[in-house]
Design a protein around this nucleic acid. Structure first.
Lengths: 351, 351
DNA sequence: CAGTTTATTTTGATCGATCTAATCATGCCT
DNA sequence: AGGCATGATTAGATCGATCAAAATAAACTG
């Protein structure tokens, strides 16, 4: 163990009182410059570091941010949270905060954990991910006046009231960009592989595709398929869509999992298309173009064009919003701030 | 915020002193049974939770375990740490500990962070991942008598001295199992795609393959290729190995990244093989079998047979070793304990 | 039944920082 | 020079728990 250096040790060496050391560090402006220097030199010399536990007792602030780590549910998209976590840890550290992890199997368990953590470690704030309709967690936190930010919009009906700070990535803007990219490449009949409607994220992403396609004069009706998230599901849905006689030459997908399945389907015989004509018959076949979402390692590995979420940025914004909340700079009259970031298209071989 | 409930509140309600409440919770055996019940009822009623900061000040124990979260370097193998982290968080919680994250770009930066954290948050222990030759970090922690466990063996020359607790997965046993699986399936000339020698993990995994192949009467010499970790690298190396006239019909790979590359190579024309004869000429071609390592989401997605590390188990063992260290149950005379787990082969289409 | 031992509970101090309020200098104004 | 606002520093209390030691109650012993 490192020998403990307390504020008293520093005070003794600098020849001042404990409080002056504290002031020199926390309210530099009320200490005489020369004294401040002397204190800082002593701090340096002894390698003093403020003890969080002691500070926390007095101030009630732990400088901890808690976040739940999820079991990477479907696997393929699991690394998204991982990258976000990394960004969060870095940004938090830059602002003098540390990240504390916890797990919970469902909303209720998570709320219980809130109570546990607040009683024991007193994190200053929470970051919630995977927000969804009728989220118990946000209600509880608001109710107990615990500061928090969500990574993900509040997808509830009363989102108009915008009752908490959030950061999100604009899925619709992403799929719109993907669709535009395909249109620019000469595609017209562009399909969409999504999740069953009802999930905020999924609906949002579909909307971006539909809007852009319609704007280009193509009716999106009938060009979309919904399925659960999985490679096999994606393959099946893509097959179904490509076999129909609609002349689909490209697919925008709500996730890399579905896109990967679509890629398999697209490479199965008889589903390619010929430039300049409709599908079927002719030379120089071109494979169906596919674009995924999330830019997971899988996408990189198989050359799948995909939409990349600016996760490090999102994390940084979360921390920024939190520090504003915590430092009380937030105007209580103003509605809570929020940030919407645009994903970027990473072009690879698949489109 | 939740209204604060202190040990004093509980004491008042239960009609005893603060210390008795503390005893009832921490040393139940020295409190009269009836009193204990009364205290527990009061605790329940008020929803009391011990304040870690206050406890930490007195006891010097924070009940925090710190671990570094790495930027998922190559991406494809990134989720391994993620899954380990999840397991660690769960196991730690079960033992009354929480996980604190930090980042660091290299060993030196990590050591600096040790000092920071120990001064400020006083984590009770560290869990180190990615141990390697000449690891600065273990030396520093040993030197400062900070409890820690590594996930990964000490790969140093003086590993004989086994100076710290560790948990690891037996890579050699894994590749041995993979090789045996291929032998059982009728393969004889089985190649290996690995990393350049010098990395403990890589050498270990190669060794399991070589040993098993030799035991089956096949000389592994010349059947292995070394390359950096990447899909393209793997494809190139696999091509090279398959094109040689050695008659390789299967490949064991040190990682899923390389295996994915190998899979691509194996599917390129002219590299299949015919059962019952050597490569080239004949009917009923069979693709080259490929086995990867780590069972990443990519493996699952593309149907790659791979070796799965028991990460949740490994994490649980890490916590178990730590609690033994921290609760002082470890016999100081005994050398530190360690655990070696076996990976399991997840068989999919590729082999 | 006094004298001890053992069981149970309580009192007071303490961990290391910060808050509040008090003290001690200075400079300025009339 | 006295009065006073301002600047700089310090003394003492405090956060909530646990430790060490003391106090009290109960049990046992000869």
């Amino acid at each position: 163990m490192t020998e403990k250096v307390t504020i008293g040790d520093v005070a003794r060496l600098a020849g001042v009182s404990r409080q002056t050391v504290s002031n020199a560090l926390n309210s530099p402006d009320i200490v005489r410059e020369e004294t401040r220097q002397r204190v800082l030199r002593a701090v340096e010399q002894l390698g003093y570091r403020v003890n969080q536990a002691a500070r926390q007792m007095r101030t009630g602030r732990s400088r901890l941010i808690a976040i739940r780590i999820e079991p990477d549910r479907d696997g393929i998209n699991g690394s998204v949270l991982d990258r976000f976590l990394h960004g969060l840890t870095e940004s938090a550290a830059r602002s003098g905060y540390r990240v504390l992890l916890y797990t919970a199997d469902d909303d209720q368990a998570e709320v219980d954990t809130f109570e546990d953590l607040l009683g024991a470690y007193e994190p200053d704030a929470f970051v919630l991910t995977s927000t969804h309709h009728g989220d118990l967690r946000t209600a509880w936190l608001l109710d107990h006046k615990v500061p928090f930010v969500t990574f993900g919009r509040p997808w509830s009906a009363d989102s108009a009231s915008a009752s908490h700070a959030w950061v999100d990535v604009d899925g619709a803007a992403g799929t719109a960009a993907a669709t535009r990219h395909l249109l620019d490449a000469g595609h017209r009949v562009i399909g969409f592989l999504g999740w069953p409607s009802g999930s905020g994220v999924g609906d949002d992403r579909r909307e971006g595709w539909a809007r852009t396609l319609a704007a280009a004069g193509v009716d999106p009706a009938g060009l979309s398929r919904a399925t659960s998230d999985g490679v096999a599901d994606g393959e099946k849905a893509a097959h179904d869509l490509l076999r129909s006689d609609l002349g689909v030459t490209a697919l925008v997908c709500v996730s890399d999992s579905l896109a990967l399945g679509a890629l398999h389907a697209a490479r199965s015989p008889g589903l390619a298309w010929q430039p300049g004509r409709g599908p079927g018959g002719g030379a120089a076949e071109r494979p169906v173009a596919v674009i995924g979402f999330d830019d997971t390692p899988v996408a990189k590995a198989v050359g799948l064009t995909s939409l990349s979420q600016p996760l490090a940025q999102a994390a940084a914004h979360c921390v920024a919003l939190l520090t504003t909340l915590l430092d009380g700079q937030a105007d209580p009259g103003e509605p809570p701030a929020n940030v919407l970031l645009e994903p970027s298209l990473v072009v690879r071989q698949s489109a």
